[in-house]
């Protein structure tokens, strides 16, 4: 056996466990889910087959379609707001904070990122609720006469999401900004660009791949999240993951839940192709 062939066999051997694991517990279940999405329920029994009824129902039943629309709207709003808020934060930490304090500033800015996701979602009603900190403070200051309804609305869901994703995006955007040679900005200003022109023409385009990658991750995590809309949004309007969980819990309708998941996955895939030109997933 040639040296190259032996090397290759060894490499396959080293890769096999990870590949097998991914195949068995990710690819296989995923294919199973797609197959199941074409099954249907008879009573409480799953009947296998090729039935597009689940998909027909998703796109004709207003509850389901509305959940999809809600999810898309919330995710789009969250992604845009998070990028717009996180970019300046990352830039201030990268360019304004003295070098020796930067790691600390960054660590502090994303520290709550590491709290339990469930707990973090739980703590927002304490802040935004009728008796919450925000309302009580505003009442105390006499700025409002009676509590504002924020908790259990779409706004609360968005606030909760933005809080999480601002931290995530600050991390990814900071990592991008800091690896840029400072000479890019100096060269631009040396050639007559104002601070704003330097940002628009040089810094922003150079960090675009990082921003798009972060935004894509935000999109994926946001549209698939169950906890935040469930705890913060209340039951005023459903998102796709909430609808999926309802199918699993109440009626045990696995085929419909699978079809909804396939739709969710399709949306993510579309987002992937829309942004793939700038995506750098291997450099997250």
């Amino acid at each position: 056996m040639s040296l190259a062939a032996r090397d290759r066999r060894l490499a396959w051997g080293l890769m096999a466990p990870a590949l097998l694991w991914t195949a068995a517990f990710f690819v296989l279940p995923f294919l199973g889910m797609i197959a199941l999405s074409f099954a249907h329920m008879e009573g409480r029994q799953v009947v296998q087959g090729f039935d597009t009824g689940n998909y027909a129902r998703i796109f004709t039943d207003w509850t389901m379609l509305k959940a999809l629309i809600n999810s898309l709207e919330i995710t789009a709003v969250v992604t845009v707001i998070s990028v717009v808020l996180a970019y300046p934060l990352a830039a201030i930490i990268a360019f304004r904070v003295p070098a020796r304090w930067q790691r600390l500033a960054l660590l502090m800015a994303v520290l709550p990122f590491w709290t339990s996701y469930v707990v973090r979602s739980y703590s927002w009603p304490l802040v935004l609720g009728q008796n919450g900190v925000v309302n009580q403070t505003l009442l105390g200051l006499g700025l409002i006469a009676e509590p504002v309804q924020i908790a259990s609305t779409r706004a609360a869901t968005v606030v909760g999401f933005v809080h999480f994703f601002v931290m995530l995006l600050t991390l990814t955007i900071y990592a991008n900004l800091i690896q840029l040679s400072p000479n890019y900005a100096r060269a631009a200003q040396d050639l007559g660009a104002s601070r704003w022109q330097t940002f628009v023409h040089v810094i922003l385009p150079l960090t675009l791949p990082g921003v798009v990658t972060g935004a894509f991750l935000t999109f994926v995590l946001c549209i698939g999240d169950y906890i935040t809309p469930q705890i913060l949004g209340g039951n005023t309007e459903l998102t796709l993951p909430q609808l999926i969980m309802l199918q699993l819990g109440r009626s045990g309708n696995f085929p419909l839940a699978s079809a909804l998941s396939v739709v969710l996955m399709a949306v993510v895939t579309l987002a992937y192709f829309a942004s793939s030109r700038w995506l750098r997933l291997d450099r997250v």
Partner: peptide, 9 residues
């Protein structure tokens, strides 16, 4: 892929 989908699968 969303955790929810991985879990469901």
């Amino acid at each position: 892929v969303s955790y929810l989908i991985i879990a469901l699968g």
